[in-house]
Amino acid sequence: MARLRLATVWLGGCSGCHMSFLDLDEFLMDLADRVDVVYSPVVDAKEYPEGVDLVLVEGAVANEDNLAMIRRVRERTRILVSFGDCAVTGNVTALRNPIGGSDGVLRRSFVEQTDRDPQIPFAPGVLPVLLDRVTPVHSVVSVDLYLPGCPPPAPRIRAVLEQLLDGRPARLAGREIKFG
């Protein structure tokens, strides 16, 4: 069987889901035998490639870079997994939404909360522009599987990967869908 082309993507999240992925410990060895990691924060690939079989997407869609990235990822990937609560619900990344649009959020963080040199950072091309609302991945592109948890525990990640590697339609049983 051809080796599966696996990618992992880091949008608006804290990287905790990727840490949990690394907690797969010795299963990472089995995984290395069966997949090619073609794009990930842990490998050196600049561009998200074409023809990806499976991607784990960590994080919510919070800025314009995230938005462009998730659209590219969807176009170029067969199975897209919403990986962790930020991707699935918005979670901590979306805590800012009730404050209002990006202006209000930036003012709150960089003007109201400081007493020295209040200023809103603006560096086009360097700092991605915040979206007015942080959204879960599935409100922007279609998602094939939800893998909740903050972060999803390693055995839960493993269960999904094992099913998908065996070419089975993946499904999380019973308690494995718990948020938080």
Binding site: T89, P136, R175
Partner: peptide, 27 residues
């Protein structure tokens, strides 16, 4: 605004449990 991961009731919440028992894996 429900953010289970940072909630005082995380793991002891009837709404969170209800999501599990009713098969809610996203909204």
């Amino acid at each position: 605004n429900h953010v289970c991961s940072v909630c005082v009731a995380n793991n002891h919440c009837e709404l969170q449990e209800m999501a599990v028992s009713q098969g809610v894996d996203h909204v």
